[in-house]
């Protein structure tokens, strides 16, 4: 995937660009708001990582102008401002996701993947299918190899996110955001406790676990299963 990175801090930009290139993504790096706007006119990107505080035209304004031009490219807003009002402002301006500095690279990569997939994939599937697991969003039921798996609402929501991002990492904070709407990190690992129950239920009667734990990063739905 080809990413536009608009970040004026050299060190942060280097860390992000190196990390993304190591994950085989193409990165175009600009350091000002004006350059970022120009780059979106000249070229086409799969996603934009936009720092909120850029010299020249600031990040939020770049985003507004981008959206005013009907450019729907997925934008991940990067910011040092973690306040509740800041987040709302960012999303109001048209950001698809919002990541507060400092962050782990794996978090950024996972979110970028999710964004790019969201924009390119079929827009509102009512049925998700990965391997022998089928999740029906309308009937709210799950089957594995044709056998019904009875899930609690949060287990269902976790599985839905894993299947939407099948083959890709979903981090703990992404789960907290997508399933609970929390933008803070509880000390109690509610994600893990629900996921372990989900995994037990999915495994019942089978030998393999369709969900794998990526240590220090998050969870991933196997696509090869």
């Amino acid at each position: 995937m080809h990413v536009l990175l608009a970040e004026d801090d050299v060190e942060t930009a280097g860390f992000i660009a190196d990390g993304l290139r190591a994950l085989a993504h193409g990165v175009t790096h600009v350091t000002t708001g004006d350059a970022a706007l120009q780059a979106t006119i000249d070229g086409s990107f799969d996603a934009v990582i936009l720092d909120r505080m850029l010299p020249g035209i600031e990040g939020l304004e770049v985003l507004r102008q981008l959206r005013a031009r009907s450019n729907r490219v997925p934008v991940l807003l990067l910011t040092a401002l973690g306040g509740i009002a800041d987040r709302v402002d960012g999303l109001d301006a048209g950001a698809d996701d919002y990541l507060v500095k400092p962050f782990a690279l794996v978090e950024l990569a996972a979110r970028l993947n999710a964004l790019a997939r969201r924009s390119s994939g079929a827009d509102a599937p009512t049925r998700l299918e990965v391997g022998d697991i089928v999740l029906d969003l309308l009937r709210r039921d799950v089957t594995r190899a044709g056998r019904t798996v009875y899930l609690q609402p949060r287990e269902f929501a976790l599985l839905e996110q894993l299947m939407r991002h099948a083959g890709r990492i979903v981090t703990r904070t992404m789960f907290l955001d997508l399933v609970w709407g929390f933008h803070f990190d509880p000390q109690t690992n509610i994600v893990e406790s629900h996921l372990s129950r989900l995994r037990t239920k999915l495994r019942e009667g089978f030998t393999d676990d369709p969900i794998e734990t990526i240590r220090g990063s998050g969870y991933r739905m196997r696509v090869d299963a």
Partner: peptide
């Protein structure tokens, strides 16, 4: 302060049940 401008009517009953149900498994573990 200054957060009051984003205050809305929040259904605390639903929120409490949601959190309680979310935490119960971890407590049980």
């Amino acid at each position: 302060g200054g957060l009051t401008r984003s205050f809305v009517l929040a259904d605390v009953s639903a929120l409490t049940i949601d959190i309680a149900e979310s935490f119960a498994p971890a407590f049980a573990d």
